[in-house]
Structure formats: structure tokens, C-alpha cells
Design a protein around this nucleic acid. Structure first.
Lengths: 206, 206
DNA sequence: TTTGATTTTCAGATTTCATTGAAAATCGCT
DNA sequence: AGCGATTTTCAATGAAATCTGAAAATCAAA
């Protein structure tokens, strides 16, 4: 598909390639967003701010992404609540500018944190309530009720463990996914399969 | 909210409570499903089969959940692909029955596996493509291009690490989330915060 | 305080995704 | 092989989420 020249002849071409690459990233991140139950625009705004690294105002975002003012306003608010972007002000300029958190791990942590809050915590609460609904009976051959509780408990334990870990490592003050990942990466396990398709340099220094 | 009698007087009441509790579980799991980008019905079918533990045929599922035949058919197929339910046949009965995987960890592993396949892998592929789009230039003050690559690499490394771990621990032949969880639970980290709302027993024996 | 630029809100339009239901295909039993 | 029960498919429908745009609210500067 990408047939034409890949090496820029001049500054203008290089710039066009840069924008094109940014747009592709924005689109991918946006697609991810929808899979995650995050609105596409919200993910795109985040992608734009992250990949450019520059503070941008509402109008710039609107123009670059081609979305409405209201949409940008709501997306930006959510991102602020998630703690993955922040407001910056320019002296002598009324506009608000927004800039993305630049540390990837901190960003990933914020994402994980939000998802757990929205997905897992409510389930655990519901499981607790449900358990109280059908009291464990004493005598009787109520095998079914026993099974129900066994299964509820197992799920609760499973998700409970995951949640505890998540709070520990992905919480706002947690040790960081990075730490967790390092710990696990060293753990002795049978198989091992690299995913990179070859070209990946050497990682960062973060 | 749950004001009325909580201790069943007779078998019929006990049964009603059981069904009610099951329905609540099904509803919760279904809600989780939609947050995850899984169709509500698919999650509900799974919940029903898991919580009852019994093999059920299409008509029973339709009736219990109040959904169409086509919907059940499609949901069941996806669940089979995910590997979280299986077909069982009764001798002398043409119908197909379905039964849920009963091990929670194996179930959670399957879920994690599917999500990574659908969410993370495509992103990594896209990142690779995008990187090739804007070639790193040598001379020039192309700071922006350098930044772009730095950010792309960081994201790729982050998700790459997560993916590697996931394959290692959540893959079909992986060591299991359980193992990962145990490893992490022991890891020394500052804070610690219990999530359970009190009544949780002592964990299982799994 | 006034002013005009900037942001927020939200009812309605739009888009996206899940579900239905009936026709077509499949499949096990005799 | 033939038959009826069972499952699968998919166009049409319905429901839900998302987005727009303009009016209302906010806010910094003069």
C-alpha cells in the first residue's frame, strides 16, 4: 500500500510525514479507546496531546481532529479527571491550554486505575450483596445454595486478589506497573515468547 | 433495600431466593460485559452457565434470559471460541447442551487472553507501521520527529512488556494468573489496602 | 463593573452496535 | 436416504451511545 517515497526530499515533505504519522497514531489510540468503552474522541484528544507533547487550546484540538467544541470540552474534562492531562496557562492569553502527562507508565497506571474503578469495584460490591440474598442454610440438602456460595466466593476471591494487586501497584501512590512488570519478567516460567517484530531499539531510560 | 424476610420458611421460598440471587449475579456479570465491550447477552449466558453449573440447552437459556434464539446461538458460539464453555451431549437427545468452565482462574485467564488479543496486539502492530511512516532523519534539527519516535517507542515498550507478561502468565499454556498474583502479593511494596467489605471468609483452597 | 472572549451545557440529530425473527442450512435418528 | 428437530445466518429493527451546535454561563482583563 505505502508505495511512494519514504525519505523526505525537503522540509515540507518531512512535515507532512510527521503529521500523517501522528494522525495514524491518533486513529489507533482512538480505536483502542472504543474497544475500552472510552469514547473515541476522548481517546483521540489524549492521543493528540500525548504524541505532539505540546499544550493545545480548544480551537486547535477542534481543528486538528475535526470534532465539535462541545465534544472537546467534555473529553478534556474527563481526561483532567483521569489525571492524564493538565491545564496550562499562557500569560496574557485567556485561552486554556492542555498538555498530556508525558510519562507512559504514569499514564498506563491512570488508565488501569480508572478501569478497575469502573469495572471491578462495582462487581465486587454486587457480589457481596448477592451473597446476602440467599442465606446459607444449615440442615437440608440445599446443595444448590452451597454451590452458589462456593462460586460467588471463588469469583470474589479471584477479583479481590486482582483488585488488591491493582491498588498496590497501579494506585495513585502505588509502586507502579513498571515495578510489577519487572518483578514478573524475572519470575521463572516455562515458555517465553518475544512479541517485537524486530526493529525495536533498546527501550528508553525512563 | 432488602427489607423483607431473609431466612427461608420452606423449600419454595428457598428456591425463589436462589433464583433471585442467580438473576442478580447474571445481571451484574452482564453489566460488566458491556463495560468490557462484550455484548451483554454473551456475558449473561456465560454467567447463567457458570452460576448454575449445569449444562443447559438453547431453549432453556432463551427462556431463562428472555432473549432470542439467534442471540443465544451467536453468544454461545463466541463463548466456545473463548474456551470458557463447552458442548456436552446427552445420549438419545438431539439437543446440544452447554456447560461453563468451572475453574475461576482458568476462566479469568481466558478472558485476559481474549482481551489482549483484541485490544493490545492490534495497537502494537499499528505502532510498528506508524514508526516506518516517518523515517528518523540524520542531520537536521528534526526534533519533532525524534520526539515522535521517542514517544512511539515508549508506548510500544510499555505495552510490549505487558503483552509479554500476559502471554507468559495468561496464555493457554501459561503459568496462570494465580501464580502471577501470588508472586506479586508477596512483593514488598509500601502501602497496602484491603478491599473486602468485611465478611469475606478466608480465601479458597484452589 | 463592563465587556467580549472563552467555556460549558444539553436537547436533538446522528452514528454505532446489539437484537430479533424467520428463512435456510444442518444434523442425528430411524 | 428421508424426515423432523435443531441450529445458524443475516437483513431489518430497535436501543444506546456519541456527537453537534447554539444558547447560557463563566471569567479575565481593562
Amino acid at each position: 500500500m505505502a508505495s511512494s517515497s519514504n525519505t523526505p526530499r525537503n522540509a515540507a515533505q518531512a512535515r507532512a510525514q510527521l503529521l500523517e504519522a501522528q494522525d495514524r497514531f491518533i486513529a489507533s489510540w482512538g480505536r483502542m479507546g472504543s474497544v475500552w468503552g472510552i469514547s473515541r474522541t476522548m481517546a483521540e484528544v489524549h492521543a493528540l496531546l500525548y504524541i505532539t507533547g505540546q499544550p493545545m487550546c480548544t480551537d486547535e484540538i477542534m481543528e486538528r481532529l475535526g470534532v465539535s467544541r462541545g465534544n472537546v470540552s467534555m473529553s478534556v474534562r474527563s481526561l483532567l479527571e483521569w489525571g492524564v492531562i493538565e491545564k496550562v496557562r499562557h500569560p496574557g492569553d485567556r485561552k486554556e491550554y492542555f498538555q498530556a502527562e508525558q510519562d507512559v507508565w504514569s499514564m498506563l497506571r491512570a488508565i488501569a486505575r480508572e478501569r478497575i474503578k469502573r469495572e471491578v469495584d462495582p462487581l465486587l460490591d454486587a457480589l457481596d450483596e448477592i451473597g446476602e440474598l440467599a442465606p446459607r442454610v444449615e440442615g437440608q440438602s440445599q446443595e444448590e445454595v452451597r454451590d452458589l456460595h462456593k462460586r460467588l466466593d471463588e469469583i470474589r476471591d479471584g477479583f479481590g486478589l486482582i483488585t488488591t494487586l491493582a491498588h498496590k501497584f497501579a494506585g495513585p501512590r502505588g509502586a507502579g506497573l513498571q515495578t510489577a512488570a519487572r518483578l514478573l519478567a524475572k519470575a521463572p516460567v516455562g515458555r517465553k515468547k518475544s512479541h517485537t517484530s524486530g526493529r525495536t531499539k533498546k527501550g528508553g531510560d525512563a
